[in-house]
């Protein structure tokens, strides 16, 4: 699967209170959550996102709470992929469980600037900066996570298994 979108770059330890502040957790309405996505670090983030865009971040992305509202808000605002040095574990499982792909990259991705158009091949893990043609290689997505993604998330996957 090929993803094309512009990069939105963030630093290390982007926690779930930043991705979706707790005061919005009294609802899980997707449109409402989308409006507050990343509000803890960038207000009006939702106005800057075009559907298909990609988040590029440092280490420990999604640390903190187990709120699925975090990956839901990102998906709802139009983010199609998150690339980071590493992910916090509950965020990691939540994202794949709802069908939001994540890529871990150990290479130096600091040179990717916000606004840069990217082309990502999820199957090969190759990330290309379209302006410079520079290519980064992500760690491969574990088999089970790929199955979750292609099933469209954990619930669909489980339903198939049970049948």
């Amino acid at each position: 699967m090929i993803i094309r979108g512009n990069a939105h770059v963030f630093g290390n330890d982007i926690d779930t209170d930043v991705i979706i502040p707790a005061r919005y957790l009294n609802t899980y309405d997707h449109d409402e959550l989308a409006k507050h996505a990343m509000e803890g670090i960038e207000s009006d983030f939702y106005k800057k996102v075009t559907k298909g865009d990609v988040i590029v971040a440092g280490s420990n992305f999604g640390s903190g709470s187990s709120r699925e509202h975090a990956p839901i808000a990102l998906m709802a605002v139009g983010i199609s992929l998150v690339i980071a040095r590493s992910f916090a574990r509950i965020f990691y499982r939540n994202a794949f469980n709802i069908g939001l792909p994540l890529l871990e990259v150990s290479e130096d991705i600091d040179s990717i600037k916000s606004g840069t158009p990217l082309e990502v091949n999820l199957d090969t893990g190759l990330i290309k900066e379209l302006l410079t043609n520079r290519v980064y290689k992500a760690k491969s997505v574990p088999q089970f996570m790929q199955e979750l993604l292609s099933a469209g998330g954990l619930m669909n996957y489980m339903e198939k298994k049970i049948k």
């Binding site: 509950i90 469980n97 709802i98 954990l154």
Partner: peptide
């Protein structure tokens, strides 16, 4: 351990 809502649903 902590999980997300979809894990809980499953």
């Amino acid at each position: 351990t902590g999980v997300g809502s979809t894990d809980l649903a499953a």
